[in-house]
């Protein structure tokens, strides 16, 4: 064995369910996995999903076991689909609110709430804000429970732009800009 050559194998992992593609059949997203693999790696697709491969794969199972496995796979797929749909619905109805708050005369802070619905780590995002805008940025608890990010200064527009650029999972329509003045003012946005 050569000392210099790398001995590490490079294993292909499914771009959908993250397992080695030969295990996609157990993940519950088999259809999507197949579509992905067919595009990403046709040779491997053929090896795993060709008729011969499938036949060889089930030849050793009893009829009863095959039926049970099929039923199981169906149930899993239905569950995965339902979860996906629910997640999509949740996301489409989730709103990120960027609020400009006047603290003193001409002194502002900007609060950002609702990011957690998009699976973002608030602490990490707060840090990003701080770095990006060279200002104070922290996660604080809100009275209603939950947390929001508070950034020093009026950076509402910049934050919206930054979110849209960096976190593509948040649709533009799901971001609202509001203003919180001492005297009730009209909401911007």
């Amino acid at each position: 064995m050569a000392e210099t050559a790398s001995a590490s194998r490079e294993v292909v992992y499914c771009g959908v369910c993250t397992l080695p593609p030969e295990y996609c059949e157990y993940g519950g997203t088999t259809k999507k996995c197949q579509e992905w693999l067919e595009k990403a790696n046709p040779a491997l697709y053929e090896r795993i999903w060709s008729a011969e491969a499938l036949e060889a794969a089930t030849a050793s199972l009893s009829i009863e076991a095959k039926e049970r496995a099929a039923k199981d796979a169906k149930k899993k797929a239905a569950k995965a689909e339902a979860a996906e749909q629910k997640q999509a619905e949740k996301l489409s109805s989730s709103v990120v609110t960027i609020k400009r708050i006047e603290r003193n005369k001409r002194k502002y802070v900007t609060s950002v709430s609702g990011l957690e619905a998009f699976g973002l780590d608030l602490k990490k995002v707060a840090k990003d804000f701080g770095k990006k805008f060279a200002t104070g940025s922290s996660v604080t608890k809100v009275p209603s429970g939950g947390e929001e990010i508070v950034v020093q200064g009026d950076v509402s527009d910049e934050i919206e732009e930054f979110l849209l650029e960096k976190y593509k999972e948040i649709p533009e329509d799901n971001i609202e800009l509001v203003e919180d003045k001492k005297k009730k003012g009209a909401a911007a946005g």
């Binding site: 001995a7 590490s8 194998r9 294993v11 080695p20 794969a57 050793s60 199972l61 076991a65 496995a69």
Partner: peptide, 15 residues
Amino acid sequence: HRFPQCFPTIRIDRG
């Protein structure tokens, strides 16, 4: 997966 030869194995059946 990178170094499969380095670890003792057993094998389960498909079922």
